[in-house]
Design a protein around this nucleic acid. Structure first.
Lengths: 180, 180
DNA sequence: CAGATCATGTAACTGGTTACATGATTCA
DNA sequence: TGAATCATGTAACCAGTTACATGATCTG
């Protein structure tokens, strides 16, 4: 389960509550794929049962208690083991390309509006991603090497949206020359 | 449900059996995300219940009957409606980038071996993708415009793996210069 | 006064994976 | 003789989404 390790990673940096984690997952495209409580809170309970994290309950007046989690030595081990395991390849679910595959049924106006919508959305998301991925609150930079790694992660994400944007612009241009 | 429309799309091209579809989904990165029977066979039953496809049962001697599905007029309508609906953005689940985010805990030998593994796998998959995405059996080319669309889909996929490959090579180079 | 933020959590669901089961035929 | 291909399907499970519930405090 990826989410488990994603959480272990973050906790190896600093202790967080479920709520903190939820916000990080929501805000960062790196952790894009789950920003929902249900899974996060349940995963924390599991990790706790497995002895990989420990929880510190901080009582607050007039707000529910914060449950702050941190790694146990076993948690550190589990993380380190995962870090050395063989990397998994990125998964892309690109629904739009499937849509496009049958879009010859559309008029050229409809098709271009579809592409222009896509272009706008990619552009907008690209800006968001660029902003959030550079947010120093979302990642550590304790050594020069760690800094380089996170820069490279940020570059991978923002570069990806750039790639997608150039691709759609190029396609629109090609379709226009076909039109004439 | 994306799978539903992906199937409607394919059936709008030509009739297929569940087994045919399963193989297409397995072979093509475009439909990467599900090559498993369970869902495909169940989805076909659903589509049939909804009246979007009709089935033609072809008895065979000594082999189970082939159930060949094709679109009904309602199926064509549903597809056309979806084609004109607002495009959805690509989803990337990039587990490796999360792994990398905490990889400063590894020795430089371990880190480089991780990256080199990743590079090899991306390279290999890139070749596969390039081959399968150009396979004319997996897509129609009935008009010049349709041809252009599918070329562009193929380019999006193979270009993506190229992008990922250049990214990892670049990172390895940067890490090496840091080392010295 | 309405809506966001802090902070926890649960219920019901959809989507997707892994593994199993059957059984004939072809190919190395 | 063992593996791959053709062709159907089911059972059990894991992962992820949407929506709900509570209740105080802060901000416009």
């Amino acid at each position: 389960m990826t989410l488990e390790y994603a959480i272990l990673g973050l906790l190896s940096w600093q202790p967080f509550s479920g709520y903190d984690l939820k916000r990080i997952f929501e805000d960062s495209p790196v952790y894009h794929w789950s920003g929902n409580n249900n899974q996060i809170y349940r995963t924390l309970v599991n990790l706790h049962n497995e002895g990989l994290v420990e929880r510190d309950i901080q009582q607050q007046e007039s707000l529910p208690a914060r449950k702050v989690y941190s790694l146990t030595p076993q948690g550190h081990n589990a993380l380190r083991h995962w870090l050395n395991s063989t990397p998994s390849l990125p998964l892309r679910k690109h629904e739009f390309l499937i849509q496009l595959g049958w879009a010859d049924q559309l008029s050229s106006a409809e098709l271009d509006s579809l592409l222009s919508n896509y272009e706008d959305e990619v552009f907008a998301l690209g800006l968001l991603v660029q902003a959030s991925v550079k947010n120093p609150q979302l990642h550590p930079a304790r050594t020069m090497r760690e800094n380089l790694l996170w820069d490279s992660i940020a570059e991978n994400w923002s570069g990806y949206y750039q790639y997608e944007l150039e691709w759609v612009r190029n396609l629109r241009r090609q379709l226009q020359t076909l039109e004439v």
